[in-house]
């Protein structure tokens, strides 16, 4: 017979004595993990390209001239904090606390916006000293790798916005719990990618 229980992913799951059971929501979370694996390979290829092209500055500005230590440190702490608040959002979602959920989700999205804003201003500053994407192989790799991450974050913000809207309209339903779980995984994943950007691009750039 079917037993309903809730698992740690906040998804209603059904276990049955006869195998072959899958809850639609849980199935989608599983698929999203696989998607994250593909996204990881995408970033792997971008990292590989960046590393291969890193020394090719063609006489133009290199990492040492461009990277601003306070800037990327701020970005790092902002993103780490947003990963935490995103975790809190899923936590309060499990507890069924809608208002706290709206709060933490908004904080996460705002921190994300701040992050994207800082990144954009960094890019603008670089471009203003003629460090553009077409200046050198190094800069092509840099803008594309960091920019792809930034685009992912921006998409995540839009996605959270859409979910916020749904939470306010429908409250916490199993479907919304699933969507939140997924966007949460996505967000933490982007945090991990950033940690590598921070390490490989920025820290190794200025060391």
């Amino acid at each position: 017979m079917a037993v309903t229980k809730e698992d740690a992913w906040g998804v209603q799951a059904r276990s049955q004595t006869t195998g072959s059971t899958h809850d639609e929501n849980e199935l989608r979370v599983a698929g999203f993990w696989v998607f994250l694996a593909t996204d990881m390979i995408l970033f792997a290829c971008l990292f590989a390209t960046y590393i291969v092209l890193r020394g090719n500055t063609d006489g133009g500005p290199g990492p040492r001239q461009l990277f601003d230590v306070t800037g990327f440190t701020e970005e790092t702490f902002i993103l780490l904090t947003s990963s935490f608040t995103c975790g809190l959002a899923t936590h309060v979602m499990h507890e069924g606390r809608r208002r706290a959920l709206v709060l933490w989700l908004s904080v996460t999205a705002l921190l994300g916006l701040l992050f994207v804003g800082l990144e954009v201003s960094e890019f603008v500053r670089d471009v203003s000293v003629s460090a553009t994407i077409s200046r050198s192989g190094f800069l092509s790799g840099f803008f594309t790798l960091v920019g792809t991450h930034g685009c992912h974050v921006s998409l995540g913000i839009l996605w959270m916005g859409s979910i916020l809207f749904q939470v306010m309209r429908q409250g916490i339903t199993p479907a919304i719990a699933r969507k939140l779980t997924i966007v949460g995984l996505y967000w933490h994943f982007l945090d991990v990618v950033w940690v590598f950007l921070f390490t490989v691009v920025y820290l190794m750039g200025v060391m």
Binding site: T4, E6, Q12, A13, R14, S20, E24, G171, P174, A175
Partner: peptide, 21 residues
């Protein structure tokens, strides 16, 4: 297994079916 997914238990009643911890 009678259903395509586990909808009967958890999917159909949107708004229902969510048990907070």
């Amino acid at each position: 297994a009678a259903t395509h997914g586990g909808h009967q238990e958890s999917g159909n009643g949107h708004g229902g079916g969510f048990t907070p911890v």
